[in-house]
Each structure stands twice: as structure tokens, then as C-alpha cells.
Design a protein around this nucleic acid. Structure first.
Lengths: 158, 158
DNA sequence: CCAATATACTTCGACAGGCGAAATATTGGG
DNA sequence: CCCAATATTTCGCCTGTCGAAGTATATTGG
């Protein structure tokens, strides 16, 4: 049985070993976390509107515009107009965008396979079940105070 | 047994539920991730030199200076000079700094207690063991290519 | 013992990214 | 047709990061 203090120390000492590798993946592709998420959403939903993209990333539209601009400049995303409503802009992966997502997924899956190597099949299964239980638990908790909270809290400084 | 594709989908769909709350903690205290880590290091090692702080955060010294400047302005850290070597600057928590770290830890520990509530004692124990096994496994892996890599890779863009 | 070099840190200037407010374009209702 | 509503971009400000040059102190070789 471990105390919270011990857990805190443990995580503090080891967090870099877990988090830093992801950082490296991002840097190798020279993509920010937001850009990565935008690509992932674009892959999942084919044609995403700027609005849902902004909502998915929990950023204001002006920020989403910047993110997409950079990805367009990098040749990974393409803008298009909706036929039904010509105000809405949709973004979708370009050919190179699809390739990059393929590369990225290969990297991620290699990572997952590393986990499969380290843990036994039963341990892997157990880890997933615990993770799932945690996600469900936290999801439950988040329901209550979600009523009228806008997409992001504003905190004033000084 | 889940495929990597299924796992990818699952994480993509649920990542916000896990990551976002931490974001909120940071925003409530109006501290950046780096600032938070700097405070944590200062608490753990009492008097930290700018050099080791920069190394610990994996940022160049000029960035570390900025981080510490902000924390000093916020009244959480204080600068001092080493007696043995008057070039080195040490930072340490102020009284309010200690208080803030206390508050922060209370928040984190409440989070951990939430986890303890969601999982049974045995499940909690199992989760820790699996986490530990993973960290050890990845640590092993990281040994080989670490030889001459400087603290940060430089990637050129375009 | 002291000039040259090394070390620890800060300052400066450039640049990227995030965001609110204003601007632009399109829709839909009266 | 006109006007409010909606979707998005543009603009300007601000924060944060970082390399290079600058400052202060330590160390070392002659």
C-alpha cells in the first residue's frame, strides 16, 4: 500500500520517461500537439468543419484558423467550401496528409507493440480494463458541473 | 483481444477526459507546465541552481531564466547566490511558494483519492505494478541510443 | 600573479502561437 | 429587400521560447 506522497514522488521521478518519447514523435514530424489532433480529426471524419474542429480542440475559432493555415502551408490539409452552406469551410487530408497519418500510426502502433512485448497478454488485458474503469469513473464525475460552462474557463492574472 | 486500430480509436475518443482535468488544475493556479515543474523541483531539492533546473526541464538556460523570472514576479520563488561559487544562482520557494505547493498537492492527492475510490484496493495495486513494469521496460529500451544525444534534438523546418 | 579561458547566468531581439475584437461573407426570416 | 444570425478570417496584442551576445566570477597555464 503506497501513500499519496510516495506516488507523487514516483510519478515526478518517472514522468519524463513516459512523456518525453511522445514529445520526440511530435518533433520528428515537426507538428504541434494541436496540429496533430487536427490531423487526427480530419482523418477520422474526412471533411471537418472549422467549427467542429475548434470545438474538438477546445480552442476559439481564430486559433483553429491558425492551426489549419499552418497545416495547409505544410501541404497536409486542404480547405473546401460546403455546398449546402457556403459559409462553412471544411478541411480534409491531402494525399501527403494521408501518408503522414499512415507514418504516424505506424509509429504509434510500434509503441503499442512495445507495450505488448513488455506486458503479458493477460496483463495487457487487465491494464485496459482498469483504464476503462477509470475513464468511466471520471466521466461520471465530470457530468455534474458541466451544465453551463463554456468551452474554456477564463482566469484573470494579477 | 483488441487490435491497435481499436486501441487508437479508443484513446483518441477518451484522451480529453483524462488530460483536460490536469489542464484545468494548471489554469486555476495560472501556472504553465514548465512553471509547475520548476516549483516541484524547487520543493524537492530546496536550493536548485539555474543550471540543474534548465537540465531538469530540458530547456536552454535563457528559457529557464524566463520561467524563474515569472515565478519570482509571482512571489513564489526567490533567487540567491551560492556562497562557494558566486556565479551560480540558486532558487528556492518563498513562503507563499510553499503554500501554493501545499495547495497543489492537496489537489493532486484529491485526484489520486478519486482514483482510489473508483478502483478497488487490489485493482489499484495491480495498476501500479503494471505501470511500474512499463516504466522499467521503456527505461531499458531508452538506454541504447542515449550515448551522445544532447539534451534536445534540433529539427530543421522546411 | 595575472592574462586567457572557461563557466554560470542574464539580456536582447526575433519569432511562433494563442486569443479577443472587428471585419467579411453567407444564410434565413419577416 | 433588409436585417439579424452564423461561420469564418484578419488584425493586433501578448506570452513564451531560444540563440547570440553580454556580464560576472572562477580557474588555469605560463
Amino acid at each position: 500500500m503506497y501513500s499519496n506522497d510516495e506516488l507523487y514522488e514516483y510519478v515526478l521521478d518517472n514522468i519524463q520517461k513516459v512523456v518525453f518519447p511522445e514529445e520526440l514523435i511530435r518533433l520528428k514530424l515537426s507538428l504541434s500537439a494541436f496540429e496533430l489532433l487536427a490531423l487526427m480529426m480530419s482523418e477520422k471524419y474526412q471533411a471537418v468543419t472549422m467549427g467542429s474542429l475548434a470545438q474538438g480542440l477546445s480552442v476559439p475559432m481564430s486559433t483553429a484558423t491558425g492551426i489549419v493555415n499552418r497545416l495547409v502551408k505544410k501541404g497536409l490539409l486542404a480547405r473546401g467550401r460546403s455546398e449546402e452552406d457556403r459559409r462553412v469551410v471544411t478541411v480534409s487530408l491531402t494525399e501527403t496528409g494521408w501518408q503522414m497519418m499512415g507514418d504516424l500510426k505506424r509509429l504509434l502502433y510500434a509503441k503499442i507493440d512495445r507495450v505488448r512485448d513488455i506486458l503479458s497478454a493477460e496483463e495487457f488485458q487487465t491494464a485496459l480494463e482498469l483504464l476503462h474503469k477509470l475513464i468511466l469513473g471520471f466521466q461520471q464525475e465530470g457530468r455534474q458541473p458541466q451544465e453551463k460552462v463554456p468551452q474554456r474557463r477564463i482566469i484573470e492574472i494579477e
